[in-house]
């Protein structure tokens, strides 16, 4: 099986975010990490390759810094990588990101494409499904298990409120992967060494420019959400905080 994994670089979970001068995006001088479900998608692709042979290719779009995500994936065992490298990719909406990916892989033949179920920065929850539609492939979302069979694959979809569902589908297909589908591996020292010799194909904006258009949705402004609830801060040393809180639990909330 030949599997493509879309992996996005996003600001680290506890990175303090500040607005930039346009107030439509953040200042980019923060620490970054791989979008969490994308790491699970990579792990799943590596496991599928271990079972069925084939190739795992990782793709990202973003500035030079995003290469770090590809390096980590190669160190964990991905075979090669594709980097759509330009600052402009950061500002694309899901429709255009998917269009850029479709253009960048037009000469490849994948059996499966994995994306995360949503990104931690934009949180569109759309890129994978849009890509499937652009390619004319079937898709399934929020996937927690994948088994190959004679006619294609059987996947386990997570539904709401603790329900699940198996879906049989043909290949090629796009799947959006849910965090927790598997247990992540760490890169080994040998893996990190080998990664240095693995190919990263760079795709410039110019190469996919004709495939993408204007964003269909526009961020007018970004801001810190207004608080609507009255919150009381409990402050002091840990021991003081403990005393104040226990007093509340007992005398106001009456649960002690």
């Amino acid at each position: 099986m030949k599997i493509l994994v879309c992996m996005k670089q996003v600001p680290q979970k506890d990175a303090p975010l500040k607005l930039n001068e346009t107030a439509a995006w953040i200042r980019e001088d923060v620490s970054y990490e791989v979008n969490e479900p994308d790491a699970f998608a990579l792990e799943e692709a590596l496991r599928q390759r271990e079972k069925h042979k084939g190739e795992v290719v990782v793709i990202t779009s973003g500035p030079a810094r995003a290469q770090q995500v590809l390096r980590e994936a190669l160190a964990k065992g991905a075979d090669r990588a594709i980097h759509l490298e330009d600052n402009a990719f950061v500002g694309l909406d899901a429709f255009n990101t998917a269009k850029a990916f479709a253009a960048a892989i037009k000469d490849e033949q994948f059996d499966l494409i994995f994306t995360g179920l949503q990104s931690d920065d934009y949180g569109y929850a759309q890129t994978g499904v849009i890509l499937a539609e652009l390619l004319g492939w079937p898709h399934a979302t929020i996937i927690m298990q994948i088994e190959k069979n004679d006619t294609g694959i059987r996947v386990k979809r997570e539904l709401e409120a603790g329900f699940f569902q198996f879906v049989d589908m043909p290949l090629p297909a796009v799947l959006t992967i849910q965090s927790g589908i598997n247990k992540l591996r760490y890169a080994t020292l040998i893996g990190i060494k080998q990664a240095k010799n693995k190919p990263i194909r760079k795709v410039a904006l110019a190469e996919v420019q004709s495939a993408i258009g204007e964003n269909l949705q526009k961020i007018e402004r970004l801001y810190v959400p207004q608080k609507t609830k009255k919150t009381e801060h409990i402050e002091g040393s840990p021991v003081e905080i403990a005393k104040k809180l226990v007093d509340k639990l007992r005398n106001e909330l009456r649960v002690l």
Partner: peptide, 28 residues
């Protein structure tokens, strides 16, 4: 974002906050 819906906010390291809280609850 949890603080947007919290009635009581304790900004701090849970490893500092929780053990004395447990002790205080037991004591009371």
């Amino acid at each position: 974002p949890i603080f947007e819906i919290a009635d009581y906010a304790i900004i701090g390291n849970l490893f500092d906050i929780v053990p004395p809280l447990t002790e205080e609850v037991k004591k009371v």
